[in-house]
């Protein structure tokens, strides 16, 4: 039993990585007042580019760099449409998501000819698990050693980066000068402008971080979690990350817990033992289906404010313009 729980928690951590990275990216954009439904597209684009670059260069790190590049390209497209040209931000996000959906498959097919898939990456071109010091030695120490061995050690570098991204985001948003500008821009852009700070510049800076993190979330899917890209691989994870961010009220640590909650549901679904336990009570495939849709249902329920209402940054979705 204890072992099962450890394994589920371990799975939760692995699954939560793309959610975490994307949610932190979302926090940057939305705290500055720019809606970001486009995390899904950045994740998908990041996944494809990372897989393709890693395949060509045989380097997971260059793949990661590539995913950051496409993330930034997408977030700058969003910035151009919604910050510079003051277009509808939701429409811009939907455009980017659909564009990414098409572009990744078209390119994958043209370059690799495998029906929208990329070739399996060899070990050297993937992010592999890292054994932390003394993990093996501590393995047999009850509880602490087990937790260290199973949960904390033995993940790939992106897992650690993702969990490091949370305190970093929290510090930047709440403790840095840039964070003050960021939050003020999302709350009252006019006030920010009168203090001599450029609202649009702040938003572009926020989108830069947003693109980096959004792209990285995709790299995890294709170069760490699986060893290849497959069409529609993000499968709604970008939207769930967005939901986690809203549930977390645009705060990094709360959003992290929401991400972990969603991930736990996926981890439980992936564990046949759980289904096994409930086997006699309800039809098996019904449980599987229910577990599969539970993160989505949970999102809907939480967003409906059944668990406390989330108050968005006041100026979110509004393009900034002085001259009427």
């Amino acid at each position: 039993m204890w072992n099962d729980i450890l394994l589920i928690l371990d799975g939760t951590l692995r699954i939560s990585v793309p959610f975490l990275l994307a949610a932190m990216g979302g926090i940057f954009a939305e705290r500055s007042g720019v809606i970001d439904f486009g995390l899904e597209g950045k994740m998908l684009g990041g996944a494809f580019v990372a897989a393709a670059v890693a395949h060509w260069t045989q380097s997971a790190w260059l793949g990661l760099l590539g995913s950051i590049g496409i993330g930034i390209i997408f977030s700058m497209m969003h910035g151009f449409a919604s910050v510079t040209k003051q277009g509808n931000q939701v429409v811009s996000c939907v455009a980017i998501n659909i564009f990414a959906m098409g572009l990744t498959v078209v390119l994958a097919n043209a370059w690799f000819g495998m029906g929208g898939k990329t070739p399996q990456l060899p070990k050297e071109a993937r992010f592999l698990s890292i054994e932390l010091p003394f993990a093996e030695a501590m393995r047999d120490i009850p509880v602490i050693g087990e937790i260290y061995y199973e949960l904390i050690s033995g993940h790939n570098i992106l897992v650690y980066i993702a969990f490091l991204a949370v305190p970093i985001t929290a510090w930047v948003v709440f403790k840095s000068s840039f964070g003050l500008h960021l939050r003020a821009t999302g709350e009252n852009p006019l006030a920010v402008d009168t203090t001599g700070i450029s609202v649009n510049k702040t938003r572009y800076q926020a989108l830069l971080f947003n693109g980096i993190l959004g792209g990285m979330s995709g790299a995890y899917l294709s170069t760490a979690h699986l060893g290849f890209f497959v069409k529609d691989m993000s499968a709604g994870k970008g939207y769930l990350a967005l939901a986690a961010m809203i549930v977390g009220k645009w705060r990094p640590y709360s959003a992290m817990f929401a991400c972990l909650l969603f991930s736990a549901l996926f981890a439980i679904k992936d564990k046949p033992e759980i289904s096994e336990m409930l086997k006699g009570l309800v039809p098996l495939n019904l449980i599987e289906s229910f577990l599969e849709m539970s993160p989505y249902i949970l999102t809907v329920v939480i967003l409906a404010g059944f668990v406390g209402r989330a108050v968005a940054p006041k100026a979110i979705g509004q393009p900034f313009s002085k001259e009427k």
């Binding site: 000068s177 003050l180 003020a184 001599g196």
Partner: peptide
Amino acid sequence: VLGTESGISLK
């Protein structure tokens, strides 16, 4: 303080 900060950290 907004807009007159110096340095990266706000403190």
